[in-house]
Design a protein around this nucleic acid. Sequence first.
DNA 1: ATCGTCTTTCTTGTTGCGAACAAGTAAATA
DNA 2: TATTTACTTGTTCGCAACAAGAAAGACGAT
Lengths: 223, 223
Amino acid sequence: MDIFARPIAIRRTQAERSALSDVRMVDAAIGLMASRGISGMTLKEVGELAGYSRAMAGWRFGTKANLCAFIIRTVGDEWLRALNEAVRNKHGLAAIHAATDAHSRFVHDGAERIRVFYMLWFHSTGPDPELKQVIVKVHERRQRDVEAWIEQGISAGAVREDAEVKTVAAQFCATIIGIVYQWLVEPTAQHQIHDLHQGLKQQMSRALARDITDAKRPQQEQE
Amino acid sequence: MDIFARPIAIRRTQAERSALSDVRMVDAAIGLMASRGISGMTLKEVGELAGYSRAMAGWRFGTKANLCAFIIRTVGDEWLRALNEAVRNKHGLAAIHAATDAHSRFVHDGAERIRVFYMLWFHSTGPDPELKQVIVKVHERRQRDVEAWIEQGISAGAVREDAEVKTVAAQFCATIIGIVYQWLVEPTAQHQIHDLHQGLKQQMSRALARDITDAKRPQQEQE
DNA sequence: ATCGTCTTTCTTGTTGCGAACAAGTAAATA
DNA sequence: TATTTACTTGTTCGCAACAAGAAAGACGAT
């Protein structure tokens, strides 16, 4: 009977315990940053909101920067996985269009996680090497993905051979970041964000399409 | 003789005193942020580095956020003035190309002030309304300038009439921001930054040029 | 299974630093 | 000289960061 009297203090393995506290604290931190900004998120509150003590977050992650890095890695992975899912089996312009549409959709849905992910992304512009390392990794991987799509498109004959792969990929990534910035600053202008994504697709078409006619077709694939 | 014994405690008007301390503190703050990042800049050090006491910066600006806002306004104005100088008397594509080249040049020169300005720019992505207000203003003004260039180009007959002014201007601004982000994260890759600017010019040509031949000419105006 | 020991997870206690404000001093204005 | 404006010293509060202790899982021995 005291089996029932005891609250739901389920017995968990240690690995389960840390995993659980990790996700609880990440969720808490994301919630706090989404509502109060990055500087408004405090390790103390993260611990307490996650159902632990003051110092829990500090103890697990050491420093606030470490927690942020962990969040970037975590959400960044989810994010890359979702994007790759959307692009599955496509290559060349089709892949880029699919990725852009997926990006537009995700951003439109406006999940807290993504918003905070990009907030952190933009916060790592200082000379502090800590966060930057992580960001640069995610960033490089993104750009490599885009380059791969273009190269696959070239070898499949769907993209013009003389396309400057690295430059175009860099432009794509830069524009995506610019669009995200707009979104973060003015989350209400969903229409504009959508237009910017469409414009990006068009721009990539003009840069990569084999012939003029391909590039001219604006291709409103989404919605 | 004690006129000479006394250090250079020149008699200044009160307006001069505040103006002087303002520029000293802004310089100090920019220096600190450039070397240690935004969170590494402390009001205490700003005051002392500027030659005053601990609390000087806090007293003058009230809060750290206010100091940052002040810096954004100050440098933002310098920046807009320099850009407008570079574009003087141009319109349409020529103006946009000139602005892009100027931007590329400024960023290449890599003045501390600009770097910090953009660091602050990217830091204001949270839900904190304080800094965001200022940024949004600078941002809107920028976009209006670009729209004006395009419209002038249209009425002068140099830009196609069916150009979607607002959308293209927004794309231009977004891409600039994306490029700046790249620069902040990887300041070493100057070559890439230059390429991105050139690519942006080409992209704008394709979007705005009256006929295809105009758009095809890559126009390496810079350097 | 049950006990005792070791390890990992988490908590309470403390320190130091910076932001923010309050109350005082010095310099300029009139 | 009186008043306003520019600046300084003194203090409080909150957070990050660490240290030392408590509780909960792991694991071998009986």
